[in-house]
Design a protein around this nucleic acid. Structure first.
Lengths: 251, 251
DNA sequence: AAATAAATCGAGCGTTCGCTCTTTTTTTAT
DNA sequence: ATAAAAAAAGAGCGAACGCTCGATTTATTT
């Protein structure tokens, strides 16, 4: 039973939250299922609880000082788990980074697949942007971590990460070119427009302090405040859309 | 005798190279002068040679695996210097990151000051973008390092780095607003345009593989090939300018 | 050429790292 | 209630870390 997003209209962040599978317990259950081979713990109940603690603490600690500086003793202190407990849900430190990379890739696949189900070119284009914003808001810590800690991954996975970005640019470029061919858009530099979209999407989850889109809780961790975030996402999304419209306008 | 850029027209990358002071021997001499308090070595001749070796090797090694993973023994091997020699031009590992941060800040100041000398609003705006591209190309490794290794710096310096980015956005925003007030531009979201410019400027030095703007030499290090880079910078610069023109056009 | 100062060297210090492994505790099955 | 299985605990291991410091080499001055 592979994860999918049903074809429903995810026209708001709250609607998105109701159908996106990579959140809450199911998120960590997914991590468990996809890495059962390296996880010692057998019962999902225990593994899921531990994975949540380990990954959350990893994001907290390494956001400040980086993954390399985070020692597993830091992690032990932060989670209240012993070294043994930590090593029951990973086989080595690097595994944590692998799990994050895997989930981010999966998330990107899900939103891409879903956006492609749209009926018109513009709808698909607009939804690619919006779903990307939604997913990278929900999984902000994960996206952020992957971007900055790619160098903790094996060489091959580092290349893969680059390729994800290039693929995203290619995708937008193709959509733009299709729109140009269909007479819907105009641009003399489709790739530049596509690239601009991608870096603006990255900017959203890399620099939340620019828009204060996330609030900081008493533990100093960024967290979602659904009520205040909803408007901010829509704002940023709208800004990108309007920017893109100008860039693709026929004189 | 503070460093400055004479008021000359730097209308091409090669013209820029002829007057920008942060390059070659003078670059490392500047590092030496500005950190004489923590550098044991007294004679500039020795310090400059060692700083060049240490900083170059730092960029090489940590571009692959990060500053934290780079041990001073790696550095010793890469430079052919002993531990003692390394510690004669730094007092601790963190100093390397401090030196890089200092130079990047200085570079930004120089190009900002110079751009402000332009005579018209548009000229100043356009030169801010172009000089930033020039400087971040010449000092690509430095800019790249600061972006990814900010977390190796003390808390205060981390905040400063954020502020540099916010200042840059503010500056472009002000210029845009001035242009709107003067009837030269139109935009209903000046900050979004300013932010877009800044992330596109960052993209240039963070992801050289996107445009293959730098060639890779036999040591696997990115290096400048003045002949082929000149056209690529101008291309990218032109792409940004045209994009900005569209975003600020009066209908 | 001798004397002084500066720069370089690298073995070694104390610490911390990722990780292992035996012991103990908790959970599950009978 | 008891036995078997699973999970958690944390002291301990070898390796590698940043950094120091007395010995040595090189450069400068007299």
């Amino acid at each position: 039973m592979p994860l999918t997003l049903e074809k429903v209209e995810l026209s708001s962040f709250s609607a998105f939250l109701q159908s996106f599978p990579l959140q809450g317990e199911l998120l960590y259950k997914t991590v468990f299922d996809r890495h059962a081979d390296i996880i010692q713990t057998q019962k999902a109940r225990f593994a899921v609880a531990n994975l949540e603690k380990v990954l959350t603490a990893t994001f907290d600690v390494s956001a400040v000082s980086g993954f390399d500086r985070m020692s597993l003793r830091d992690l032990s202190r932060q989670t209240g788990m012993s070294m043994g407990a930590i090593y029951s849900c990973i086989s080595k430190k690097e595994d944590i980074a692998l799990m994050v990379a895997d989930i981010v890739r999966l998330s990107n696949e899900l939103i891409h697949q879903h956006a492609m189900q749209a009926e018109s070119l513009w709808e698909s284009f607009e939804q690619s942007i919006r779903y990307h914003l939604y997913a990278s808001t929900l999984l902000q810590a994960w996206y952020f971590f992957l971007y900055f800690e790619t160098r903790s991954l094996p060489q091959q996975q580092q290349e893969d990460s680059k390729q994800i970005e290039l693929d995203a640019i290619d995708m937008f470029e193709k959509q733009i070119c299709a729109g140009i061919d269909g007479g819907e858009f105009y641009s003399d530099n489709p790739r530049m427009v596509a690239n601009t979209i991608v870096v603006l999407l990255e900017d959203w989850y890399l620099k939340p302090w620019k828009t204060e889109s996330l609030s900081i809780n008493e533990q100093g961790r960024y967290e979602l405040d659904i009520n205040s975030i909803e408007g901010k996402i829509d704002n940023y999304n709208q800004s990108i859309i309007e920017l893109v419209k100008k860039l693709l306008a026929k004189d």
